[in-house]
């Protein structure tokens, strides 16, 4: 029984909690991608770098607040700078839409041209973020680092394995829960949210019903920028900010959106958690778990790791390929791109 509890704590500590945290971050990111897709009808390659941009603004504000000698006690300062970062990112994204995307929308070009324009936007943002904040790691999570420390947990329970719960993990899950609940309430219950769904569902009929396309598009960008900034800040608080990792998040986020069914918000959430859980669970070394579960004195040769950590991106990719082969519409029957 003791061994079983130890194995469970070990799994919680290294698989369950990290994948719930990472899954929440991916889910919020993928929600932005899927919303832009369902309204503007293109895969937005700039989403990862929008996340990086928003996070950068939050970091600058955090530094500003810290320079004033203020703090939030146990919570990271980034939480109160979040609204400012969101506002700046919204302004940027709306500006980009006005200057770049609107033109193609009015011309009704092939969606792939919009994808390419978004690649151009991605690289410009990419350069601007690096110019402003550099390429190195930035850690900006202040406040209390842990809610439960491994040592305290061990003393409390008498188990050999400790459970560490970091503040940023709890913040991620709480914020993600609030954000998703608010988004789903907005989409399901408000007139504007419903008009967005209607526009996504049947653009021509939405126009006939008097729904204003430019307004829907603007609201979509506002939501997408908000989600991107929140996802970026949560990820950065949890794992540190580095511009290149945000570009690399693009693949798991796309995979999550497609796995869930593109254009389906609920799908993006489920997809985000599935991708995150697969990544963490498949790259975790299970040696000690097996040793706890096996008979006394049982030893496992090697790490008992299914896939090396270096290949974690391959996991999203393989899931993506399987979805494309088996069910291109995704779990929740989204649109086939």
């Amino acid at each position: 029984m003791h061994d079983f509890a130890n194995a469970f704590i070990l799994l919680s500590n290294y698989v369950l909690i990290p994948s719930i945290t990472y899954g929440s971050q991916l889910a919020i990111g993928a929600l932005g991608i899927t919303l832009v897709f369902s309204i503007l009808r293109f895969a937005n390659f700039a989403h990862g770098d929008t996340m990086a941009f928003g996070t950068m603004v939050a970091i600058f504000c955090t530094w500003g607040v810290q320079a004033l000698g203020l703090s939030l006690g146990p919570l990271p300062v980034a939480l109160i700078t979040l609204p400012v970062a969101i506002a700046v990112t919204i302004a940027l994204v709306l500006g980009i839409d006005k200057i770049i995307y609107q033109f193609y929308r009015n011309k009704k070009v092939e969606p792939i041209i919009l994808v390419m324009a978004s690649v151009g936007v991605m690289f410009m943002m990419n350069g601007i973020v690096r110019i402003l904040i550099g390429t190195g790691d930035v850690s900006f999570a202040d406040g209390a680092r842990f809610i439960i420390r491994a040592r305290e947990f061990r003393e409390m329970t008498g188990l050999d394995e400790g459970l560490a719960l970091r503040t940023t993990q709890v913040i991620t899950v709480v914020v993600a829960g609030v954000v998703m609940a608010a988004l789903f309430w907005f989409l399901q219950k408000t007139r504007t949210g419903k008009s967005m769904r209607a526009f996504s569902d049947n653009e021509d009929l939405a126009l006939l019903s008097g729904i204003k396309p430019e307004r829907v598009v603007q609201i979509t960008w506002i939501i997408a920028a908000t989600l991107a900034t929140i996802a970026g800040v949560l990820y950065g608080l949890d794992k540190g900010f580095r511009p290149f990792t945000y570009f690399q998040l693009l693949l798991p986020m796309f995979a999550a959106a497609i796995l869930g069914g593109i254009g389906q918000p609920i799908g993006a959430v489920v997809g985000g958690f599935v991708i995150a859980f697969s990544e963490v669970a498949l790259t975790y070394a299970y040696r000690r778990v097996f040793e706890y579960l096996g008979p006394d004195g049982f030893e496992v040769e090697g790490l008992a790791q299914l896939i090396e950590t270096e290949y974690k991106f391959a996991i999203s990719f393989i899931i993506l390929v399987i979805v494309l082969l088996v069910r291109p519409t995704g779990i929740f029957k989204g649109r086939v791109l």
């Binding site: 293109f42 895969a43 390659f45 092939e110 969606p111 792939i112 994808v115 690399q248 693009l250 693949l251 796309f254 995979a255 497609i258 090396e308 270096e310 290949y311 991106f313 391959a314 999203s316 990719f317 993506l320 390929v321 494309l324 082969l325 291109p328 086939v336 791109l337």
Partner: peptide
Amino acid sequence: VAIGLRSDYLAIATLGIAEIILAVIKN
């Protein structure tokens, strides 16, 4: 895998395969 679906899928899939080829070559 990716051809025959709309062109965005090919873009996403090729983005992925490039990352993986590089991961293999690096590791």
